[in-house]
Design a protein around this nucleic acid. Structure first.
Length: 589
DNA sequence: TATGGCTGCCC
DNA sequence: ATTCTGC
DNA sequence: GCAGAATGGGCAGCCATA
C-alpha cells in the first residue's frame, strides 16, 4: 500500500472538522486498507508505529527532524527552524521547502510504501550508541528524499508526535466499527476491547479475523496493562455530591506516580505507569511490598507510589518520588528516597475480572486482597453525604500532604471505566478553588511563537516577578494555558509597544523567548504550587543557594491587570513567603 | 572527561 | 498536568 | 459533554562535542 494513500487521507481529515465527516473519511481509508496492513494503518492513525506499551521510542523528535529536513532540502537547520516558527508546523515547513521549484527535480519523488515507512521508523527507534543520531538522521532523510511533499508533511508530524488531524483513538474506533463491525453498534465492543488490551492493532486484527464476537472475547489479563480510569474536575463540594447522587467515597489524592501492578500466573509482579510504561525495575521495593502483601495469585491493582517517610508518617513532595524514576543506581535511590504504595483499586483477582463490579465491592475486595504494612497501605477514604463534611475531609487531606480528593461514585454505575474520564470519579484540588489558591500578578517579559492552531500568534509568554530590592524582573514561569483565542489575538497589539530587540536590561531570565518585552503588561496567573527551580531565577538563592522558584501547572486566569504597573507585580519576596508558608501549613488558610 | 542539547515521560 | 473550542 | 489540541515544570538517560 502506498503511503500516499494514507497521507492524502490525512490531508482530507485535516481540512474537516465535523466528527461525522471525519469518521466517514477515516472509514474510507480503512476500507481501502488491505487486511494485513490494517493494524499498521491503525497505529499510524494514532500517531504510533506500535502499541503504546511496546516501548518503541524513536529517540528522535523535532530538533533532529529539522536537521533531516535541512539535509534533504539542501537548506540549513536555522532556515528550517525559522520556517517552523513562521508556519507553526514542521510538516508544513518541509512540504513548502520540498514543493519550491529550487528543490524539486520534478518526478523524481516516487513516493513511499506504508511498509517501508514503518520499517524505517522502527530502524530509527532501534538505532543506539555512538553515531546513532547521525544514523537516525540519515534514515529519516532517506525517506524524505523519496517522499512526495504531502507524504513528507505527515511523516514529519508522525516523527514529532503531532499529527494534528482532529482524530484520536475514539474516532479510529468509530471508523473501524463502521467498516468492519457493521456500523456504530459495534463501537462499544471495540472500545471495551481496546481499553482492556491497549493495542488498537490487535483489536483491528481480531475484528477482521474473528468478527465482533472475537473482540468481545478479549479478556482482561494480568501482564497486559489496562487503560486507566480518569477523573473529571470540579471545584465545589456541593456540585460534586450532586453529580454523584448525593453520596460519594472521598479518597485522598496522593501526589506521586500512579501505578498499575500486575501479578501474573507465574508469580511475577510488573508495574506499569498510567501511560503503560513498564517501571518495575525502578521500584524493586514496591515489587517486594506487593510480593509480600498481595494475596491473590493473579491480580491487577492500582495505587499511587509516593515518597513517604513511614516512621514519621509523612508524605513527601512529588519531586522526591521522581528521583526514583531512574535506570542506574537504583539501590542507592531506594535508600535515599523511600516510598510507599497507597492502593485504591483492584481490577482483577484470581481469575476474575472485577472491573464491572460497583466501587464498594471492588474496594472491599481490595481490602481483602492485601495484608497491609507500614509502606503498603490503602488510600484514606471516607463515605460522605454532606458538602460541609466533604470540605472538611478535603482540608484534612491537604493538611496531611495530599493534593486533594478523588470523589468516587458508590452507585450501581460505579464500575471501573477503563480509559474513560467519566463523572464516576471527580477530582477536587486546592488550586481549582480560586479563593483557596495562590495567584500571582506577573509581568510578561517575553513570548514564544505558537504552533498548530496557534500559528501566527504567541503560543505562550515568559513571566517574571518583581525583585524590588534590585529593581529587576526575574523569570518564574512560562504560561500558555488559560488564554482564549481572543486573548491570544489581542496579545500582539498589547505587547507591540513594549517589544525589544534584545533582553531588556531589567529582565533576568535564562530562557530564550522568540520576542522580548520591556516589563509593562501584568497578568494574573494561577498555579498549583511553587516549586524550587534550577531554571528560573525568581527569588534565586533566597530559599536555597542554587535554586529559584517556578510554578507547577501555571495558567492565565483571564484577568488582565491593566490596573497594575510592572513594579506593582507580585514580588519575588512575596513568592518566597508563599513558598515557605505552603510548606509549613499545607492547608494554606 | 565534563558539559550541554535533546528526548521521553512523570505530573 | 490545565484549559479552550468545535461539534 | 466529548474529543482533540494547545500549553506548563522538571528529571534522567543518551549522545555529541568541547
Amino acid at each position: 500500500m502506498r503511503y500516499l494513500i494514507v497521507a492524502e487521507a490525512y490531508r482530507d481529515l485535516e481540512r474537516l472538522s465535523s466528527r461525522l465527516a471525519l469518521t466517514e473519511r477515516l472509514a474510507a481509508l480503512l476500507a481501502q486498507t488491505p487486511a494485513d496492513l490494517l493494524p499498521t494503518v491503525c497505529y499510524l492513525c494514532q500517531g504510533l508505529i506500535a502499541p503504546e506499551f511496546a516501548g518503541v521510542d524513536l529517540g528522535m523528535a523535532e530538533k533532529l527532524a529539522v536537521r533531516a529536513v535541512a539535509s534533504t532540502t539542501g537548506t540549513s537547520a536555522e532556515q528550517v527552524a525559522a520556517l517552523v516558527r513562521e508556519t507553526g508546523d514542521l510538516g508544513q515547513a518541509a512540504e513548502r521547502l520540498l514543493t519550491s521549484p529550487a528543490t524539486e527535480p520534478a518526478g523524481l519523488t516516487a513516493g513511499l510504501e506504508v511498509g517501508e515507512v514503518v520499517r524505517t521508523l522502527r530502524e530509527i527507534a532501534a538505532a543506539e550508541g555512538a553515531g546513532s543520531q547521525g544514523r537516525k538522521l540519515e534514515l529519516l532523510a532517506g525517506l524524505l528524499a523519496r517522499a512526495t511533499p504531502v507524504e513528507a508533511c505527515y511523516l514529519l508530524r508522525l516523527v514529532t508526535r503531532n499529527l494534528r488531524l482532529g482524530i484520536g483513538t475514539p474516532t479510529v474506533l468509530d471508523a473501524l466499527a463502521q467498516v468492519h463491525a457493521g456500523g456504530k453498534a459495534g463501537k462499544k465492543v471495540l472500545e471495551r476491547g481496546y481499553n482492556i488490551c491497549c493495542d488498537l492493532g490487535k483489536v483491528a486484527a481480531t475484528l477482521v479475523s474473528g468478527g465482533l464476537a472475537a473482540v468481545e472475547g478479549l479478556r482482561v489479563q494480568p501482564g497486559n496493562p489496562v487503560r486507566v480510569m480518569l477523573a473529571q474536575r470540579l471545584a465545589d463540594a456541593g456540585e460534586i455530591l450532586a453529580r454523584l447522587g448525593g453520596q460519594c467515597a472521598a479518597e485522598y489524592k496522593y501526589d506521586g506516580v500512579r501505578v498499575q501492578a500486575h501479578r501474573t500466573a507465574d508469580g511475577r509482579i510488573e508495574l506499569f505507569t498510567r501511560r503503560l510504561e513498564e517501571i518495575s525495575d525502578q521500584f524493586p521495593d514496591v515489587v517486594e511490598l506487593l510480593a509480600a502483601g498481595l494475596g491473590p495469585s493473579e491480580a491487577i491493582l492500582e495505587g499511587e507510589v509516593v515518597a513517604y517517610d513511614a516512621a514519621a508518617g509523612e508524605l513527601r513532595p512529588f519531586g522526591e518520588v521522581m528521583l526514583r524514576r531512574r535506570k542506574h543506581g537504583i539501590d542507592q535511590a531506594v535508600q535515599d528516597v523511600p516510598v510507599g504504595l497507597f492502593c485504591f483499586e483492584l481490577l482483577y483477582a484470581d481469575g476474575e475480572d472485577l472491573t464491572m463490579l460497583p466501587y464498594p465491592r471492588r474496594r472491599a475486595a481490595l481490602e481483602a486482597a492485601l495484608t497491609l504494612s507500614p509502606r503498603l497501605r490503602l488510600t484514606t477514604a471516607a463515605e460522605v453525604t454532606d458538602p460541609a463534611v466533604l470540605d472538611a475531609t478535603f482540608a484534612q487531606a491537604v493538611t496531611d500532604g495530599c493534593e486533594g480528593l478523588v470523589c468516587k461514585s458508590t452507585g450501581p454505575d460505579s464500575g471501573y471505566q477503563a480509559g474513560a474520564r467519566g463523572w464516576q470519579w471527580i477530582k477536587l484540588k486546592r488550586d481549582y478553588r480560586t479563593e483557596l489558591s495562590d495567584t500571582a500578578d506577573l509581568v510578561i517579559v517575553g513570548a514564544f511563537a505558537g504552533r498548530g492552531r496557534r500559528a501566527g500568534v504567541y503560543g505562550a509568554v515568559l513571566l517574571a516577578a518583581y525583585d524590588a530590592d534590585a529593581d529587576v524582573f526575574r523569570a518564574v514561569t512560562k504560561c500558555g494555558a488559560g488564554f482564549t483565542d481572543a486573548d491570544l489575538a489581542a496579545l500582539p497589539a498589547r505587547l507591540a509597544p513594549l517589544q525589544s530587540p534584545h533582553k531588556p536590561a531589567r529582565v533576568d531570565a535564562r530562557q530564550e523567548p522568540d520576542v522580548w518585552f520591556e516589563p509593562g503588561l501584568v497578568v494574573e496567573i494561577l498555579s498549583a504550587e511553587l516549586t524550587l527551580s534550577p531554571n528560573y531565577t525568581a527569588a534565586w538563592g533566597q530559599i536555597r543557594d542554587d535554586a529559584g522558584l517556578a510554578m507547577r501547572f501555571p495558567r492565565f486566569t483571564g484577568r488582565w491587570r491593566d490596573d497594575k504597573a510592572a513594579d506593582d507585580a507580585t514580588t519575588t519576596r512575596e513568592l518566597a513567603e508563599l513558598f515557605l508558608n505552603a510548606r509549613r501549613t499545607p492547608a494554606g488558610g
